[in-house]
């Protein structure tokens, strides 16, 4: 069995973070449904906020999983989270055929089952023998699927499969429906996949080390999420009205600016020294 190394002391209990992450992300994704209820597009940005909340929780799951000596496994954990999450998320969007309200909950349930199976295979069949493996892979799959669903809802303003495979393209000023200009047909999902996969692994990968601290890593998660939100807002130009895009963009910029400046403050707090144009301080390595 692998030995656990405590990554950082203090911080919020992981179960509490799981609760906040799961409920927060679900509520925000449901808020995107206001678009359909009120026939507007301005609530799309809630999808991005759902993804940020999910990433915030997922960062701690990665930290828990990778405290078992998986140094180079951090980016891989992000890839498996989004890779399995996208399967659950696409399957769940099909549930909109029964009722659109089933999609977010269905997404969580399917992802949890899928993740538990994947985690069991990694832990028992591949014999990695990491005690938290099954649970953390299941959590990461849920986080991955919620991140995908959130960003997809933000870029398209909706989360039902039917709307994701029909886009409108204009030929000589005439609007015609086409699969190739939809979210799935245009493979915008490929970009969302990479944005989520790098954003989920980056905070812990960037902050790991003996002086890693909980609040700095979590702030980095918010920063990565809102940075992804900025570019998702730009991509939603293809699907949403200009007012909806501007609202998403402004909210993303404000969130990112705040989290980035906070992250710099926290790095300054944790750094050994904050030097500008100074030479190397020798501490005793061989010359």
């Amino acid at each position: 069995m692998s030995v656990k190394i405590e990554a950082s002391e203090g911080g919020m209990d992981h179960n509490v973070m799981l609760g906040i992450g799961l409920v927060g992300a679900l509520v925000c994704i449901y808020l995107v449904y206001l678009n359909t209820l009120m026939s507007v597009e301005v609530f799309a940005f809630f999808g991005g906020i759902a993804a940020i909340i999910a990433l915030w929780w997922g960062t701690d799951s990665i930290k828990n999983l990778c405290s078992y000596g998986l140094g180079t496994g951090v980016p891989s954990a992000g890839m498996i989270a989004l890779g399995s999450g996208v399967v659950a998320m696409l399957f769940a969007t099909k549930l909109a055929g029964i009722s659109p309200l089933l999609v977010p909950v269905g997404c969580v349930v399917i992802a949890a089952i899928l993740g538990a199976i994947l985690g069991f295979i990694s832990d028992k069949v591949l014999n990695m023998n990491i005690p938290v493996m099954t649970r953390m892979i299941a959590e990461l799959t849920v986080v991955g699927s919620l991140t995908m669903l959130g960003f997809t809802a933000m870029v398209a303003g909706t989360f039902s499969f039917g709307d994701l495979i029909t886009g409108a393209t204009s030929v000589f000023g005439v609007e015609i429906a086409s699969y190739a200009s939809s979210v799935i047909g245009g493979c915008v999902l490929a970009t969302i996949f990479m944005l989520g996969a790098i954003a989920i692994q980056h905070p812990f990968n960037a902050c790991l080390g003996p002086n890693e601290s909980w609040d700095r890593t979590q702030m980095c998660a918010i920063e990565c999420g809102s940075l992804s939100m900025i570019v998702i807002a730009i991509m939603s130009l293809a699907f949403l009205s200009l007012s909806a895009v501007v609202i998403s963009f402004v909210i993303a910029i404000i969130l990112w600016g705040w989290s980035y400046s906070e992250l710099i403050k926290l790095s300054k707090r944790d750094a050994f020294a904050w030097l500008d144009s100074q030479p190397i301080r020798e501490v005793g390595g061989e010359q």
């Binding site: 992250l263 944790d270 750094a271």
Partner: peptide, 20 residues
Amino acid sequence: TAYLGRTASLAKFEQPVYID
């Protein structure tokens, strides 16, 4: 964020953040 994060986490080994 990668440079700041990694370097700040090495404070124990007296590696400063060179902001320049």
